[in-house]
Design a protein around this nucleic acid. Structure first.
Ligand SMILES: [Zn+2]
Ligand SMILES: [Zn+2]
Ligand SMILES: [Zn+2]
Ligand SMILES: [Zn+2]
Lengths: 178, 178
DNA sequence: GCTTGTCATGTTATCTTATATCATTTAAAC
DNA sequence: GTTTAAATGATATAAGATAACATGACAAGC
């Protein structure tokens, strides 16, 4: 990674808009290799390939899509192959699961401890990862008021990415963003 | 409902702690009947029963759990029976889907237009619904910065409810709530 | 070198969640 | 009463996920 986002930095939603995507992939893989080496984790061929597949696109891939691609790359072809690789990547913080899609995406801020939030375009399926601080807003207020101890948060927003708002698919150019 | 929460009201997470649960059910059903009558929706027997089943507990029920109970109540026994009833309830705002559980729960604030947030206890599975304003916090900031138009948000927090924090299951009494 | 323990992979089977489709019934609209 | 739309019944299948067990790779210890 060429940047090291701090936990408090405003979100940097790569994924919408142009960027040097080749370096997304290269940086992501390099970062993963370095972190695995540092932490004693084993980035085996199938795990590395799974991460590379996720990094190739800024959208979420279902486990069976992943399985198809792993099979095409010469790895095993049974569901556990994909799920095990994905479990490793998620556990290590190299990928996230998008709950409302039952699908997986490479982490855009690896290395930093963070609570991700996702913006998911319902038209082109692009997904951008932002930083959330849900425990600081109204959710945190409700949790404190009721005595609930938050351990993990899922924050996902469905809507339209900039590129998909021009056409006939949306209508609400401003919408809930306010 | 005996209360009419405004969109800005701080969350009122019924579900943890004691309350008059009989009125949860009665009020929920009455509210649904009134709203269906007002909006021309048809709260058929199976839909009404499904809502009653959801209202009976402050936790999320899987579609197949729902199907079992509907079957026990004399309704059809095939998956679409449960999914159609649940789809109706969700579309009408009488229930919500908890994405990280693939399960459904009765809405605790029916009538009010709201963006729900859920606190889910990983031990006792209790679920409390609070109000979220994710578009106002860091997610909204990221959306505005990138031009993303939010249409729907999923906000779910996993953790420990007050009752489950005493025992050996947690440890982090303060934790991410801050 | 061989044993042993650990982790990863290969494979089979099964389970859970969800939807497509078509026939039939019911209820509203005219 | 006929038309029309919505809801239900029923069959089949798709999609997502895990349990269980056998096999293989590899390093530590002897
Ligand atoms: Zn990129
Ligand atoms: Zn991330
Ligand atoms: Zn109650
Ligand atoms: Zn609600």
């Amino acid at each position: 990674m060429t940047q090291t986002p701090s936990a408090d930095a405003p979100a940097d939603p790569v994924g919408f808009g142009r960027h040097d995507h080749a370096s997304c992939i290269a940086d992501g893989l390099a970062e993963a290799e370095a972190r695995c080496a540092a932490k004693g984790l084993r980035l085996t061929p199938v795990r590395r390939k799974a991460l590379e597949i996720l990094l190739q696109e800024h959208r979420a891939l279902g486990a069976y899509d992943m399985l198809d691609r792993l099979r095409a790359a010469g790895f095993g072809s049974q569901p556990p192959v994909a799920y095990r690789a994905l479990d490793f990547l998620v556990a290590g913080g190299f990928a996230h699961k998008i709950e409302c899609l039952n699908a997986f995406i490479a982490c855009a801020h690896p290395g930093a401890r963070h609570t991700p939030a996702f913006m998911i375009c319902r038209t082109c399926e692009a997904v951008a990862e932002a930083q959330a601080a849900p425990a600081r807003g109204s959710l945190g207020k409700a949790a404190r008021a009721s005595g609930f101890a938050i351990e993990r948060t899922v924050v996902e927003a469905e809507g339209l990415c900039p590129a998909c708002q021009g056409g006939a698919e949306g209508g609400a150019g401003d919408g809930a963003g306010a």
